[in-house]
């Protein structure tokens, strides 16, 4: 458990590479990193660019829409903070990066590869979060 409260968010396990993402959610912004040298976008946070190795980057807000690339529905064992069955989708955002998001609030039968989705910002207890909804 990290005490990240002094770093602007309440996500349970983060470090200084990931803080910007959770801080973005506090402002209802879905942020990814853009390499300052080669402009490559990356969603899974990392201190360095997988394309060119630069450590310089800036946060870029995504528009929030994309298409389901894959999905899974969790049934067992019980998850902390989510009811089962719990669908999740790996989404190719319109900017080209993939992002994994919860799809609670959507019937698992309505989750499918190729379907258009849009981000919805939610709070889970005291943590700013997001999920996807079908368009």
């Amino acid at each position: 458990m990290t005490d990240a409260s002094a770093r602007g968010h309440n996500a349970p396990c983060s470090n200084r590479d990931f803080d910007f993402f959770y801080r973005g959610l506090e402002d209802e912004r879905l942020l990814v990193q853009r390499c300052a040298r080669c402009n490559q976008l990356r969603s899974l946070p990392s201190p360095g660019c997988e394309s060119c190795g630069s450590l310089d980057w800036e946060p870029l807000p995504l528009a929030g829409e994309g298409e389901v690339y894959s999905y899974v529905t969790h049934y067992h064992p019980p998850l902390p903070g989510f009811a089962a069955p719990h669908p999740m989708a790996l989404v190719t955002m319109d900017e080209g990066v993939r992002l994994l998001g919860a799809m609670d609030g959507t019937d698992p039968a309505d989750v499918a590869i190729g379907r258009r989705v849009r981000v919805e910002f939610v709070r889970r207890e005291n943590v700013a979060a997001f999920r996807f909804r079908n368009l």
Binding site: P12, P45, H74, L100, A102
Partner: peptide, 14 residues
């Protein structure tokens, strides 16, 4: 673990 947590944030935990 920060990657597991980033995915766990969506409920992907197992």
């Amino acid at each position: 673990n920060v990657i597991f947590a980033y995915h766990g944030f969506a409920g992907l935990m197992t």
